[in-house]
Design a protein around this nucleic acid. Sequence first.
DNA 1: GCATTGAATGTAAACGCTTAAACGGGAGGA
DNA 2: TCCTCCCGTTTAAGCGTTTACATTCAATGC
Lengths: 347, 347
Amino acid sequence: MSRARTLRDLAEGLNLSTATVSRALAGDEAIAVTTRQRVTEAARSAGYVPNIAGRMLARGRSGFVGMVLPVRGPALVDSFLGEFVTGLGEGLVERGSDLILATAAEGKSELAVLQHLVASGRADGVVLTRIAEADERVDYLRESRVPFVAHGRLLDDDQSYNWLDTDGAHAFRQAFEMLYALGHRRFGLLTITEPMTFRHLRQEGLMAAIRECGDPQVTLDVVTAPRFDQPARQAAVARLLADGSRPTAILALFDELALTVMEAAMRAGLTIPGDLSVIGFDNVPAAAYAPPGLTTFDAEIRKAAREIGHLLVDTIESSDAPPARRLMCPRLVARGSHGAAPATTGG
Amino acid sequence: MSRARTLRDLAEGLNLSTATVSRALAGDEAIAVTTRQRVTEAARSAGYVPNIAGRMLARGRSGFVGMVLPVRGPALVDSFLGEFVTGLGEGLVERGSDLILATAAEGKSELAVLQHLVASGRADGVVLTRIAEADERVDYLRESRVPFVAHGRLLDDDQSYNWLDTDGAHAFRQAFEMLYALGHRRFGLLTITEPMTFRHLRQEGLMAAIRECGDPQVTLDVVTAPRFDQPARQAAVARLLADGSRPTAILALFDELALTVMEAAMRAGLTIPGDLSVIGFDNVPAAAYAPPGLTTFDAEIRKAAREIGHLLVDTIESSDAPPARRLMCPRLVARGSHGAAPATTGG
DNA sequence: GCATTGAATGTAAACGCTTAAACGGGAGGA
DNA sequence: TCCTCCCGTTTAAGCGTTTACATTCAATGC
């Protein structure tokens, strides 16, 4: 019995009805064990693979999980997407699901693509990344009761949806404490203007740590630049470094910014970490190569995405479960870009 | 008329048959223009989105394109996947298709996943990356007449399938000529042991260029290491650099290797490009940050993947067209890691 | 005035699977 | 011998589209 393409081919060859074969393959207890074995074996030897369209139609589910590719500028500096997709794929395959990746066409909003994805039955649930402080995608999905998991969270977190996030507040607190212990008192924070929740949380973490340490000598200089505006970023860095009372330690919201700081510092004749300590966040590959090696935090995106995959499938399968909220602690990657504060903190 | 979920809802509301509505939405000329407009408008205002499962079943096609995530080690050093997926997504959405990304489960071969993907009707065609000199995936897909496009090609190229590749031979020839003009005569090539076609082609390109220049003074030292074996790689680099008659210019098969060379050279007290010129391939982000900046070639993966998307959909839609073969020329990115050969080429 | 045509729409049969409900037939009890 | 029950299997009705073919009806030709 070779090359059975449909359930019917298989059933006819076995002198059984398609119903029995379907049940047998599903492992239905109601079917006699011997029959189940016979069917399974026949299916295997015939190389039978169930047609997904038939199954989708009958079950009312696709077995797919969707994700909309974030629209990007021409340059793709980070490996976030690759790691995320890899991890998500791993998580999903472990739960028997597959990933469908939709791209927003020119001029179409990510939200519109998301809606289409679920309305057409392509996806049973979706994954969201890069959550803004207030996010229309979250609002829509919550309201329309589509299962989803967010990587990141809203600023106003009301336990009404699934999220998994990296504890950026904790990381920035940890960075501050480490630097403070090394004698640093004048801090700089380089951040972005876009209202992303992670920006807020990291900054809050830093500021809370400063407050709690209670040392009045500690100062913080916060400088912002638009996420994708290279000249503006350069200007912001210049402002931070040129300042009369220049910080001795700069925290950057993420590595890309930290690398910009390091470059600018080099060019300005400052040595790192002798004159200036710099700490980033993300642990992009370049962080290891930019001398003297950027100290940063690794969010273990791949592992996080894998978790998200599990979480999403679980949510799809039991939609009555309460929303899950998971905070992952990023790992400090200590390299050469931080050290003791310079002896003379001139100013 | 709000929230029509199915064609029937829509048809009933309009007092038409589902057939007419289906045809009208498809823009069938047989349907009266006025009816077509009426239907389109109703569909729009009802937010109707065709159910993909029904469509798949009726059409015998999914509208999806598949790709199997290459299984990877724990470290994900490059941004290849992210760029590729982004470009592919762009190419597909421009042709009205979507991407489904399958991951090979632990212990399952990529080929098995590929087979399942097409046999289940999930994908109408697939994309292959990282083609080996001889590749079972290509053999299988060719034989089973599944539409596919390969990013890369077999060593034995017989025009029987679609591929798009970066012209690595050309790049390595160009690199040689540039270095030769700068006075270099002793060359090193750091490559991998795995039988990937691109390895062969790049090396061939270099060797052909050397042959053709006809200068008997030119020497080439080829050293190989397994792709993912870090210690072995270090050893290979050490061999290349420690050699009594050390090369003055080293070409690395790709940036990751080139960066290893640069690190080792620094550690050995060699200055780049004063004592040694290094050229890579890929233009990974870290290439820009590793001092003095790695000279390399940019394969424009995102653009290539986009092309691949177009090509694949075209192939699916007219499967009788002759196989396409497209060679893209990588762009030289000149940075600081290459320069004039040292005056005394001691030996 | 009747047959013929063609435009516009409808009917119904797929497509391949799942599953509620019905069925057949043997074992066990009366 | 008949009835009941249960186990294993089948029947049949979907799921939402598409599309070959049939139908209707008005206009045209003779």
